[in-house]
Design a protein around this nucleic acid. Sequence first.
DNA 1: CTCGTAGCTTAACGCTGTTAAGTGTTACGC
DNA 2: GCGTAACACTTAACAGCGTTAAGCTACGAG
Lengths: 200, 200
Amino acid sequence: MPKTTDADLDLRRAILDTTRTLLVREGYSKLSMRRIARALGYSATSIYLYFENKDALFHALIDEGMERLYRVLKASQEGWTDPVERLRAVCARYVRFGLENPEYYELMFMPHPRHMERYPADKYRRARRNLDLVAGALADGAAAGAVVPGDARVQASTLWSALHGAVALVLAQRIDIRVDQEAFLEAAIAHAVGSFLVRS
Amino acid sequence: MPKTTDADLDLRRAILDTTRTLLVREGYSKLSMRRIARALGYSATSIYLYFENKDALFHALIDEGMERLYRVLKASQEGWTDPVERLRAVCARYVRFGLENPEYYELMFMPHPRHMERYPADKYRRARRNLDLVAGALADGAAAGAVVPGDARVQASTLWSALHGAVALVLAQRIDIRVDQEAFLEAAIAHAVGSFLVRS
DNA sequence: CTCGTAGCTTAACGCTGTTAAGTGTTACGC
DNA sequence: GCGTAACACTTAACAGCGTTAAGCTACGAG
């Protein structure tokens, strides 16, 4: 565990920043401890002074990504009066975040579980805030009579999983080329949200 | 490109079978060309006589997985009279396939795109059959007046992406531990299908 | 001046995917 | 029957990987 002197935190921060940059620029598969170190002008082993191993470094980045996602989602839900419009805005913003930050998104939600098995499943605390945010929007909609009642957390997970499926398949380029991608994304969001709305 | 003599096909088949076995037994991260070869009693480089590289080997496995999935989905949709029940059955079977064959499923739908970038996106032909199967079930439902009309292929992609999201998050252990997994899966399938049904 | 230590490096281990070159066996034209 | 070509496979090697152990250097305190 690193101490918390200024110098320590400086290099730790630099490692995180460089890793994120390399991740976006060159992609996940080309990211190695040695490459990160080379870009920083340090030796590869220095990284181990601040992060237990490669997974721990990734995990720190995931945490940062969750924080970023939380901020954009929170911003997107402000200023709406209609709870349904607000819900739609949050969902659309989530999808946009995923598509605009593919490498980040993959790191956050798509790693092979085995690759992260050193970490307990409950470590994704910041992820919960994002789920709770969606759950809150759903609860508000239910209170207004526009959303079907139910366990808000199960509902939020369900809604989220539908959005995640859309983002994941687009990022992985698994959407059939005969299908228009924009139309698909629009339909995915509409159906995900729509399935929770009370029909009048 | 390997010739098609009998001996050739024998080892090719053995490589595929062993790889699948190792994948299930030890997981994706421990799968290496050398391990596969050791399990087979051959040298690692022999695999390159039958597969261009590791990705090509994985790709062949993906093709096999798509074929298996197609067979179970096809079987699951037979014997139903109500098109909606049939649609539900196909969706439930899809989710079950993913949860029962996690390693397979990950290989088929969740690899980092960069990891597979040597392959053109249109190579997933067998995957289309699965999409067309869902599209067919939706079209039948629409013909019976039980499913909302629309582009069947976009609808199928949307439905599929919702199911995929649920499977992917469960496999990646990203579902909040405070959420009951069974309830979540049930809700996910119900909402995915339900959003396409005509309300009476 | 000496000691401890903070911060970093070098060397090494065992692993990875992949290529180039080599080996032995088998089949065939003459 | 002999030379040759093709085939099926191996060995050796390269460059890179994550990670560990040990060592080095500079600096502040006593």
